[in-house]
């Protein structure tokens, strides 16, 4: 895959109108545009507190002193960055069909990265399949979009999907709390329970970008088939019938319901991205009024 396959000028231009807004990022971050829990030298007044030695004398509110006779200093909201950690699924299933899910997934990851970089947030990329690797360490800078695209384009197919191991490895990195965008089909051979259990251990804000296509729920298969899992190699002999398809759809719906239920309970964001359609219009649908509140 070439970097040119992931973006073009219109693609980047269409993303400049989109912003990711954090309700309040955890303090200790780099100065940026997101509201944080830290109080400091920002522009938005947030609170008063009694003066203590060492405080900046410019922060003393003299009006209060004149009325109450006590010295208080004004506290302002500190603006910091919201780190974005993009976790693209590079398991074999992402590269199986045509067009491959990986293409739409990497475009979505690049789009989110570009939005964050535009607003001075740091972005890190951690592709995963049966394990997680660090492709791009978290860093900020608008000019990094092109570099990021080239790195994403260089990704090679991985192995079997293992959310438990991959997300455990991600948690062990000890990154500052930010937003984790997981771009995947979420087809873990261990089932949706293993997926949600792994996701539940993450202490970051979550945005799940589920890569789907119509045939996931309505497979176009007939006859007596040996269906081979492209990742695990496990086979299932199936005589396709209406009843079998009905049971398949029921199984798929249970999977989907499990994922949705987790998203609701966690308060995470979720986007079902049709890999056979344009990425940006679908992504924009999540950004209501151009803003996505993380």
């Amino acid at each position: 895959m070439e970097a040119g396959d992931l973006y073009d000028a219109d693609f980047l231009e269409s993303l400049t109108r989109l912003r990711i807004i954090a309700t309040r990022v955890k303090g200790g971050g780099r100065h940026a545009e997101q509201r944080s829990r830290d109080l400091g030298s920002g522009f938005d007044f947030r609170d008063f507190r009694p003066y203590a030695p060492g405080d900046d004398l410019r922060a003393i509110d003299w009006n209060i002193y004149s009325r109450l006779g006590r010295v208080f200093v004004r506290l302002y909201e500190e603006l910091e960055d919201l780190p974005l950690y993009v976790l693209p699924d590079i398991s074999r299933s992402s590269f199986l069909e045509e067009p491959p899910r990986a293409r739409a997934g990497l475009r979505a990851g690049l789009a989110l990265s570009a939005i964050s970089l535009n607003q001075h947030d740091s972005v890190g990329v951690f592709p995963f399949s049966d394990d997680l690797s660090v492709l791009v360490r978290p860093a900020a800078g608008k000019r990094r979009v092109l570099t990021l695209a080239e790195r994403l384009a260089s990704i090679e197919p991985g192995g079997e999907t293992d959310f438990g191991k991959s997300l455990s490895r991600f948690g062990a990195l000890g990154l500052r709390e930010g937003m984790v965008a997981i771009v995947s089909d979420f087809f873990d051979p261990r089932g949706i329970e293993a997926v949600t259990a792994a996701l539940g251990k993450l202490r970051h804000r979550l945005l799940l970008v589920q890569l789907t296509r119509k045939s996931d729920r309505e497979p176009d298969l007939t006859g007596d088939l040996r269906l081979v899992d492209c990742e695990s190699g496990a086979a299932a002999d199936v005589s396709i019938s209406a009843a079998t398809l009905e049971r398949y759809r029921a199984a798929y719906d249970r999977f989907q319901e499990g994922l949705t239920k987790f998203v609701r309970s966690r308060g995470a964001g979720m986007l079902q991205l049709d890999v056979e359609a344009e990425v940006v219009p679908q992504l924009a649908a999540v950004f209501e009024g151009g803003r996505y509140v993380a």
Partner: peptide
């Protein structure tokens, strides 16, 4: 025995659940 046509799929997870009740003719 039914001679199956081999088809790779992104996941056999749902198919395994589906055929638990109606297995292929053997």
């Amino acid at each position: 025995r039914v001679r199956h046509r081999e088809v790779p799929v992104v996941t056999a997870l749902f198919w395994r659940e589906a055929v638990e009740e109606t297995r292929a003719r053997e």
